[in-house]
Lab assay of single mutants.
Amino acid sequence: MDTYKLILNGKTLKGETTTEAVDAATAEKVFKHYANEHGVHGHWTYDPETKTFTSTE
């Protein structure tokens, strides 16, 4: 398992979190669920070199 990072740049919520996942697709599902639960619906990007997802509203 690898550690993946999420950076949230929402209108009402900003911050970072991490998750352990078997691959990027699994981490993306976890992070999108997390963002949706916190009302963040933004544009998603992923940097495979740093294993970092960013959601920007």
Rank of each mutant, 00 (worst) to 15 (best):
Y34S: 01
G10V: 04
T56R: 05
T12F: 14
E49R: 10
D47C: 09
K11L: 15
K32M: 11
V22R: 13
K5V: 10
E49S: 11
A25P: 08
E37V: 13
L8C: 09
A27R: 00
G10P: 03
T54M: 10
T19W: 08
A24I: 08
K51E: 01
G42R: 02
V30R: 09
L6I: 03
P48M: 07
K51V: 01
E37M: 14
K14I: 11
M1S: 09
K29C: 10
T12H: 13
T12E: 10
F31Q: 00
E57Q: 05
L6R: 00
T26S: 13
P48D: 09
T50V: 05
F53E: 00
N9T: 07
T12W: 14
G15F: 15
L8F: 11
T52D: 00
H33I: 14
Y46L: 01
H43G: 07
Y46R: 00
T17D: 02
A35L: 12
H33P: 02
V22I: 13
V22G: 09
N9G: 04
H41C: 12
H33V: 13
T45I: 07
H43T: 14
T26L: 05
Y46E: 00
K5G: 03
F53M: 00
D23A: 03
Y4W: 04
G10D: 03
E49K: 10
T19A: 07
T50I: 06
V30E: 09
D2G: 08
F53V: 01
Y4N: 04
S55D: 06
K32D: 03
A21K: 00
K14N: 09
T17F: 15
P48T: 07
H43Q: 14
Y46C: 00
G42E: 03
T52W: 02
T50E: 06
K32L: 11
A35M: 09
E20C: 14
E37L: 14
I7W: 03
L13S: 09
A24S: 07
T54W: 10
H43C: 15
G42D: 03
L8V: 08
K11Y: 10
V22D: 06
W44D: 01
T50M: 05
K5N: 06
L6S: 02
K11A: 12
P48L: 06
T18Q: 09
E28A: 09
L6M: 04
T18V: 08
T19Y: 12
E49D: 13
L13Q: 08
L8N: 00
A27L: 01
G39A: 06
K11P: 12
F31L: 08
M1Q: 08
V40E: 04
G15H: 14
K5H: 12
A35Y: 03
Y4E: 03
E37R: 09
T56M: 07
L6H: 02
G42H: 03
I7Q: 04
A25N: 08
T56G: 05
E49Q: 12
K29F: 08
N36M: 14
M1T: 11
L8H: 02
E37H: 09
E49P: 08
G39H: 06
Y46A: 00
K51W: 03
A21V: 03
T26V: 07
L13N: 07
V30L: 11
H33Y: 10
D2N: 14
N36V: 13
H43P: 06
K14L: 08
F53S: 01
T19K: 02
T56P: 03
V30S: 06
V22F: 11
H41A: 12
D47A: 06
G10A: 06
I7F: 06
Y34M: 05
D47S: 07
E16P: 03
E28C: 15
K11H: 13
M1D: 06
E49H: 11
D47M: 05
P48Y: 06
V30H: 13
K32C: 10
A21S: 06
E37F: 10
K5A: 05
V40N: 04
T52C: 03
H33E: 15
F53H: 01
A27W: 02
E16H: 09
G39K: 07
D23M: 02
G42A: 05
E28Y: 15
D47L: 04
D2T: 14
T3Q: 09
V40W: 13
K29I: 12
A35I: 07
E16K: 07
Y34H: 03
D47P: 00
T54P: 00
H33N: 13
L6F: 08
T54F: 11
A35E: 06
A24Y: 13
E37K: 11
E16N: 07
H38W: 11
T26C: 07
N9M: 12
T18C: 11
K11I: 15
K5Q: 05
K29S: 10
M1P: 08
T52S: 04
A24K: 12
E20T: 12
H38Q: 12
A27Y: 00
E16A: 08
F53Q: 00
H38G: 04
T26W: 07
K14V: 11
V22N: 09
T17A: 11
L8S: 02
V30M: 09
M1A: 08
E37I: 13
K11E: 10
L13A: 09
I7S: 03
W44Y: 03
T18S: 10
G39E: 05
V40L: 08
T54L: 07
Y34P: 01
T50F: 05
K51S: 03
E57F: 06
A24H: 07
P48A: 12
H43F: 14
F31W: 00
E28S: 06
K11Q: 12
T26F: 06
T50K: 07
E49W: 10
T26R: 05
H38T: 06
E57R: 02
E49Y: 10
T52R: 02
N36L: 14
G10Y: 12
T52A: 04
T17H: 14
G15W: 15
T18R: 07
A27I: 02
K5W: 09
Y34A: 02
E57Y: 06
I7H: 04
H41S: 11
S55L: 15
F53R: 00
K51M: 07
E20G: 04
N36S: 13
H33G: 09
E28Q: 08
N36K: 14
T12N: 13
K14E: 06
N36P: 02
E37N: 09
T18P: 01
